[in-house]
Design a protein around this nucleic acid. Structure first.
Length: 315
DNA sequence: CACTTGACCTGTCCGC
DNA sequence: TGCGGACAGGTCAAGT
């Protein structure tokens, strides 16, 4: 679920919280898949380093270190990065992290993660929990928790200069919110996918960066384009409108702190409110805000897809 | 090559 | 009540 606005919201929080802090210790509480670097490498280039910057490219977070290394982090669907100030979760780890990690299901309020809107403190107090994969502790005893219920996400420690050379960075398309990314650029790139559906094309990270299922559905609704239409049947003018709507929907979501559908939270454990403003996503059975027709959920590009069947016509 | 589908995971929800 | 299966969706590998 973390798409561009969610990752950007986390970045803004970490950028405020982390620079200058020194890494003191780390623990991987799960299979090494979550953080596959050899322990010796992490000890050499993470421990003792200070955070110099927090960046984002597409849906990837980049935490730059004074050692010339970077923590490259992908949250995939259910990943969370939550920073806890000294004296809270951090103390409990030192006391009994084994027991805490293995037996927290009864203590974690499910409504906090899956739709409650409870205060931030509840989540922070409960960390680490059964979804915690990596614990990064700073010298001031504050802690950064990497939680990931479904274990798709990962952290990799890489030399900063090598980050642009990893496959994902070489292939990923332009940042949609950069002013230099124009409709002409977008049209040129997306026409390479003329044979596929417009939804599959805007989800393709090599066409443009950062759009996932939520913002694909929202931007297509705004542009009155049916997600199943082939790219070749979408006009250049429609593509220009679509890019404008992608930009505005992403920016609105950043302004609202992102979308919390199930378990997204920001760097301080707070939920995002964008979905209150969504027009179609997860609103099947409700009325289209534009024409009043009933919103439907269909399947396009292998994804659950939300449309207004009247506004978004297949030609 | 272009495109689609399945795998990776775990928790939730729905129907029987 | 418990149980099986569908579903959630970012990305890559495998298949068509």
């Amino acid at each position: 679920m973390p798409e561009l606005p969610e990752v950007e919201t986390i970045r803004l929080g970490l950028k405020r919280l982390l620079p200058g802090r020194k890494f003191a210790s780390f623990e991987v509480l799960d299979s090494p898949k979550s953080f596959p670097n050899p322990v010796s490498e992490v000890e050499a280039f993470l421990l003792g380093s200070t955070v110099s910057d927090v960046r984002r490219r597409a849906k990837v977070l980049l935490i730059d270190l004074s050692t010339g290394y970077t923590l490259v982090i992908h949250l995939k669907m259910t990943g969370q990065l939550v920073y806890v100030q000294e004296g809270m979760g951090a103390k409990r780890i030192q006391q009994d992290h084994e027991a805490t990690v293995r037996d927290t299901s009864s203590r974690v309020d499910p409504s906090l993660r899956f739709g409650g809107g409870h205060p931030t403190d509840s989540l922070i107090d409960s960390l680490p929990d059964q979804s915690t994969r990596v614990v990064l502790r700073f010298a001031d005893e504050s802690t950064l928790f990497f939680n990931d219920q479904r274990k798709f996400g990962w952290i990799k420690l890489l030399p900063t200069i090598s980050v642009p050379e990893i496959d994902f960075m070489k292939k990923v398309g332009p940042e949609p919110l950069e002013a230099e990314f124009t409709a002409a650029d977008f049209t040129k790139r997306i026409r390479r996918r003329n044979g596929t559906t417009i939804k599959a094309a805007i989800l393709d990270q090599t066409v443009l960066a950062g759009v996932g299922n939520i913002y694909a559905d929202e931007s297509l609704w705004m542009t009155k384009i049916h997600p199943s239409i082939r790219v070749r049947n979408v006009t250049d003018d429609q593509l220009a409108d679509l890019l404008g709507n992608i930009k505005s929907v992403l920016q609105l979501s950043i302004d609202k702190g992102g979308s919390t559908d199930r378990n997204y939270v920001d760097a301080e454990g707070r939920r995002g409110s964008y979905l209150e403003f969504a027009n179609v996503f997860r609103r099947e059975g409700q009325s289209c805000p534009r024409c009043g027709s009933e919103i439907e959920k269909i399947r396009v590009a292998g994804r659950g897809t939300h449309i207004c069947p009247v506004c978004q016509v297949i030609q």
